[in-house]
Computed example of a mutant assay.
Amino acid sequence: MLDSTATSIILNGDRYPLHSDTPLAELLERLNMRRGRVAVEINREIVPKANYDVTIVRAGDHVEIINFVGGG
């Protein structure tokens, strides 16, 4: 359960705590996701990889992250 000072985003359909505006690149680091192996959509808009450092994730945003996995 979130405390009264926390806000949240919706991350892949689930509530995820976010205490302040956060750069997308930082969120990916927190989630241990390699930027080169993911695709990200925020509020139904695809975020180009070149914009991960400057894109800010805000409370209430709906974020979808798809992690690509290689195999054979």
Results as ranks from 00 to 15, higher is better:
I66D: 08
D14H: 11
K49D: 11
R58L: 06
E45I: 04
N67C: 13
V69I: 14
L2N: 13
L24R: 03
D21Y: 11
S4T: 13
E45Y: 00
G60C: 11
F68A: 00
T22Q: 09
A59P: 00
L31Q: 06
A39L: 15
D14E: 14
L24N: 03
A25Y: 05
I56L: 14
L24D: 03
R15P: 15
I56T: 11
N43C: 05
R34C: 15
D14C: 10
K49I: 09
A25N: 05
I46F: 07
D53S: 06
F68C: 03
E41V: 12
I66E: 04
N12Q: 05
K49Q: 15
S20N: 10
E45A: 00
T22I: 07
P48E: 06
P17C: 09
I46P: 07
S8N: 11
V63S: 06
D14R: 15
P48F: 00
N12R: 04
I46L: 10
L11R: 10
R30T: 06
V69N: 08
L2T: 10
G36H: 12
V47H: 02
V69L: 13
D53L: 01
F68R: 01
A25E: 14
V47E: 04
S20P: 10
N67Q: 13
P48S: 07
V38T: 07
E45T: 08
Y16E: 10
V38A: 02
L18G: 04
M33T: 04
R58H: 10
D3S: 07
G72W: 04
T5C: 11
G72E: 11
A59C: 10
V38S: 06
E64R: 13
T55H: 01
R30Y: 09
I66H: 02
H19Q: 14
K49S: 11
T22C: 08
L11H: 05
G13R: 05
T22L: 08
E29Y: 01
E41M: 11
M1C: 15
L31K: 01
M33A: 09
E41Q: 14
D14N: 15
N43I: 02
M1Y: 14
I46M: 09
T7N: 14
V54K: 08
V40S: 01
V38K: 01
R35A: 15
N43A: 02
D61N: 13
L27C: 00
Y52F: 15
T5A: 12
R15S: 15
I65D: 04
S20C: 08
N51R: 12
F68W: 13
E41G: 07
